[in-house]
Design a protein around this nucleic acid. Structure first.
Length: 897
RNA sequence: GCCCACUUAACUCAGCGGUAGAGUGCUACCUUCACACGGUAGAAGUCGGAGGUUCGAAUCCUCCAGUGGGCACCA
């Protein structure tokens, strides 16, 4: 059999995915056990415009590990893939395309434009699905969903209509965030606050029929043109006499009242606030409280309106700002201008400064929908957030402070609002236009031109992907889903809303757990972003190190923010190569061997290293199950890594070589070869959820794997490690004694190797060993493993004795745990002075340790209050140290004259 | 302003009440018949600082400092 010395990830990555997909392994139908437990994840749908970034790769890895793990455990497992139409983003991308042809969407008209978007989606929207296949994501492509598909659109209309009928959705006037560039309303969550250095202008407003002036402070002087009041705190004595009086708004001449309102903080600025109800959310609310008129001085393009006066009409908001300030200065009403740091709202898509405007839009009363999820989290802590801190609190706080959600967007790409108007302006909200006509009693209807916020359809994702509003089999089987894996920045936008809709329409939580991943940062700890150009393309990493290695790094990220470093991927690339070569060794020596054979009869009759590796394997399997179930992927990766490299490669294979590499075929050789193969096969299963490609590539080559290896639920499937039963770990095979005994062998070997290195004994040179095993039974352990110890220490001869009494003076010596000793006679190589120093140093170390331990044992409070087992443990340790110290003393004597 | 998280070996990170860990890097030796993307051995940390609780603290509490988040109606 030809097996290359170096693992080539590409080869494996290209050869398995399409087969898995074609054979239907990703679909839950592959599971033929009617009683199988169910496991379901719905993917956070990436934008159609998007291509894979590290965040996706991270989330997908986590989801795939969970999916593959549960599938191997025999769950009826479904991971639903899909994409989001991503309203604004997609529209912007297509508009950019049009611009190349010197066209705008208005040149095409609505219908042609949306056709164009669909075309664009068909041409290039599938990019990310290819990339997901590259990742090895075991999603069920037969259930792929798209938020704008007919079925999901129907779900959106159903949702909208029902909410409208219950009064949860309404149309009305309100102050909303308006993006002057994208020309649409935005929800609060689509606005990003950014801190910015600016100026605070102190403007003076004259009091009518008086010389007195009131100074107000503002960062936006241009809005003063729309002021309809000045507000002060009712308890502010400075303005006590002023409340109720009239000011004359400079430049405009409008007479405006001074009102009293608790909102005003007397400590800030001058304690007097100009009130512009039409252009500031707080002023809007204040205006409503005091019944103030709304004067709209800024339009949708962020230009001043005619209401702003002839001098300003048509000016850009920033030009107007300068002009207002100039005029105040001319009038002597500009008191001062100070530098000021404040936060400004920007459109999170295009970074344009948001303009709060009064506008008629569709809104949703979230407070009512949020009540059920709020009760749930408070009473049962569901969904369970991982990590619980801080996200449960973040989520709860949000639900406690829900504001109305601006639903409508002045875009063309998205779900059109299912509302129609007749000639008189009456509204008919209906599931279809026919229904609306029927309700209106006329065919002369026009549909609302606006579309819904993208997150409206996202809110339905877990139920709509499974078939809602129809009561489908999938919905019955897979809802609620088990876990939502996502990033922390969409807990409000998405997670909370899915819970609301799920509880409202399906009567149950959308998911049991919410796993919030950490963020992958660049080398200097910065978030990766397109703007900063500091992103690392996962596809480049795949190319360089392989998908499996990258997945190990990503799985290890878990929930903490992590700086990206290629080092780690390289380490796991090396690990993949190690796996490859361990398998290569097993396969090159597999004549006569089969997976599943070799471990026969009573474990008590097995050789120590066989009992040991069996114990280690089962312990590892248990830890893996525990860790993955509890989302501790880092621990799982570390565990399997050390089992494979440390236990299996460094020790088990080495200990097995004496038998495996025997020249002549024999039942013993076959058995030894079968045993390494069997352990390897189990390890590949344990690794599979993390490293799907290399494990499948190797597993397929193992002699003796087949239908029998599969989990019973997949009896009819063809052999694949994907559907092999995940080892659970058998507690009866965990053997503490075997592990302790093996530890003694390992220590002996390590100490001898240490002596060899320190005394510069050439690796090729064989030595003689004398082991002073004492009378406590360790001699038998060493005796039973003589050939292995010989091989690993490169010893020509080993004699096991009770003490080292008969050892030549010219020997290097070491003390082992439990009081055993080892000596390496090295006539001519020993410098007695140096050797005494070496042994002496070790004695010093022990002495210090003993002092510490004895001091603790001498502390009566420790002995009284610490748990008895801890005290016992420490006493045993002290005893061990004393024994070893005594042995070292004797060695010093032997080395002396 | 309020809230939260993080700070452990040169680097990236585990550990979260009972002898400081891993990978990378570093040092020495080794091209030994699975693997130099390897092997063996080794050096390396007053666990951010100061207090406190405890028989015992990297781990729990308080304060401080630095870093990074989230929230907020401060014009």
């Amino acid at each position: 059999m030809e097996i290359p010395k170096t693992y080539d990830p590409k080869q494996a990555e290209e050869s398995h995915y399409s087969r898995w997909e074609a054979e239907g392994y990703f679909a839950p139908e592959i599971n033929k056990d009617p009683a199988a437990p169910v496991y379901c994840i719905v993917i956070p749908p990436p934008n159609v415009t998007g291509s894979l970034h590290m965040g996706h790769a991270l989330q997908h890895t986590v989801m795939d590990v969970l999916t593959r793990f549960h599938r191997m455990r025999g769950f009826r497992t479904l991971w639903v893939p899909g994409m989001d139409h991503a309203g604004i983003s997609t529209q912007l991308v297509v508009e950019r395309e049009l611009r190349k042809e010197k066209l705008t969407r208005h040149d095409l008209g609505r219908e042609k434009f949306t056709e164009r978007v669909w075309q664009w989606k068909a041409d290039s929207g599938g990019q990310i699905t290819k990339q997901m296949r590259r990742e090895g994501a075991s999603v069920d492509w037969s259930r792929e969903r798209f938020t704008m598909s007919e079925q999901l659109s129907r779900a959106v209309r159903e949702f909208f209509v029902r909410c409208y009928e219950e009064g949860l959705i309404y149309r009305g006037e309100g102050i909303i965030n308006w993006c002057p560039k994208d020309q649409t309303a935005l929800s609060d969550l689509e606005v990003e606050k950014e801190s910015q250095g600016g100026k605070l202008y102190y403007l003076q407003y004259p009091v009518k029929d008086s010389d007195r002036r009131v100074t107000v402070a503002t960062t936006r002087p241009e809005t003063m043109l729309g002021d309809t009041a000045v507000a002060v705190n009712p308890d502010d004595e400075r303005y006590a006499g002023l409340v109720g009086s009239t000011l004359v708004l400079p430049l405009v001449g409008r007479e405006i009242p001074v009102v009293a309102d608790d909102f005003v903080d007397p400590a800030f600025g001058t304690g007097a606030v100009k009130v512009t109800p039409a252009h500031d959310p707080n002023d809007y609310a204040l205006g409503q409280r005091h019944d103030l008129p709304q004067v709209r001085v800024i339009d949708q393009h962020a230009r001043m309106t005619s209401e702003a006066g002839a001098d300003f009409d048509g000016l850009d908001r920033y030009e107007a700002r300068e002009k207002v300030v100039e005029k105040f200065e001319e009038l002597g009403l500009l008191e001062k201008v100070v530098d000021y740091e404040f936060s400004i709202s920007k459109c999170d898509r295009c970074r344009t400064v948001i303009e709060p405007l009064i506008s008629t839009q569709w809104f949703m009363k979230q407070a009512e929908l949020g009540r059920a999820p709020l009760e749930l989290i408070k009473e049962t802590h569901e969904p369970r957030f991982v990590p619980q801190t801080p996200y449960e609190k973040v989520y709860t706080d949000w639900l406690e402070n829900l504001h109305d959600w601006t639903l409508s967007r002045q875009l063309w790409w998205g779900h059109r609002i299912p509302a129609w108007y007749d000639g008189e302006g009456n509204v008919y909200v209906a599931r279809t236009e026919e229904d609306a006509r029927a309700a209106a009693g006329t065919g002369e209807l026009t549909q609302d031109p606006d579309v819904l916020d993208t997150w409206f359809s996202s809110a339905l994702w877990p139920i709509s992907t499974l078939g809602w509003p129809d009561e489908t089999e999938d919905l019955k089987t897979f809802y609620p889903t088990d876990v939502l894996v996502t990033a922390r920045d969409i807990i409000f936008l998405w997670v909370s809303r899915m819970m609301m809709t799920g509880m409202k329409f399906k009567g149950g939580k959308a998911f049991r757990d919410v796993f919030i991943t950490g963020t992958i940062l660049d080398k200097s700890g910065q978030r990766m972003s397109k703007m900063k150009q500091n992103g690392i393309d996962p596809l480049d990493v795949f190319d360089k190190y392989g998908v499996d290695a990258t997945r190990l790094v990503l799985a290890s990220v878990e929930t903490t923010d992590t700086r990206w470093s290629d080092n780690q991927v390289e380490a796991y690339r090396n690990f993949a190569n190690k796996i490859w070569n361990a398998a290569r060794f097993c396969l090159l020596n597999s004549e006569g061997a089969r997976v599943g054979k070799g471990f026969d009869g009573d474990p008590k009759s097995w050789a120590l290293h066989d009992r040991w590796i069996t114990s280690r394997l089962n312990r590892t399997a248990r830890t893996m199950n525990e860790a993955i179930t509890n989302y501790r992927f880092h621990e799982a990766v570390q565990t399997i890594y050390h089992f494979f490299w440390g236990d299996f490669c460094d020790w088990y294979i080495e200990l097995s070589k004496t038998d495996v590499l025997a020249d002549e075929p024999s039942p013993a050789r076959d058995a030894a070869r079968s045993r390494v193969l069997t352990v390897l096969e189990q390890a590949l299963r344990l690794l599979h959820p993390f490293m799907p490609f290399i494990t499948e590539e190797l597993w397929q080559r193992l002699p003796g794997v087949g239908e029998d290896s599969l989990h019973p639920a997949y009896k009819d499937a063809k052999p694949t490690v994907m559907l092999a039963a995940y080892p659970e770990g058998d507690g009866r095979l965990i053997d503490d004694r075997a592990e302790a005994e093996m530890q003694a062998v390992i220590e002996l070997v390590s100490r001898v190797r240490n002596i060899r290195t320190e005394l510069s004994v050439k690796p090729s040179e064989e030595v003689r060993l004398v082991v002073g095993a004492g009378r406590n039974g360790q001699g038998d352990i060493f005796r039973a493993n003589l050939p292995q110890i010989k091989r690993l220490t490169r010893a020509a001869d080993i004699s096991i004795e009770e003490t080292l009494a008969s050892v030549p003076r010219a020997s290097a010596r070491a003390v082992l745990g439990g009081g055993a000793e080892v000596a390496v006679p090295l006539e001519g190589l020993i410098d007695f002075e140096q050797e005494r120093a070496r042994v002496g140093r070790e004695g010093e170390k022990l002495k210090k340790e003993l002092e510490k331990v004895e001091a603790q044992l001498a502390n009566p409070q420790f002995v009284e209050r610490a748990p008895a087992e801890k005290v016992e443990e420490l006493r045993a340790r002290a005893e061990d140290i004393r024994r070893r110290s005594a042995a070292l003393e004797q060695m010093l004597e032997a080395l002396g004259q």
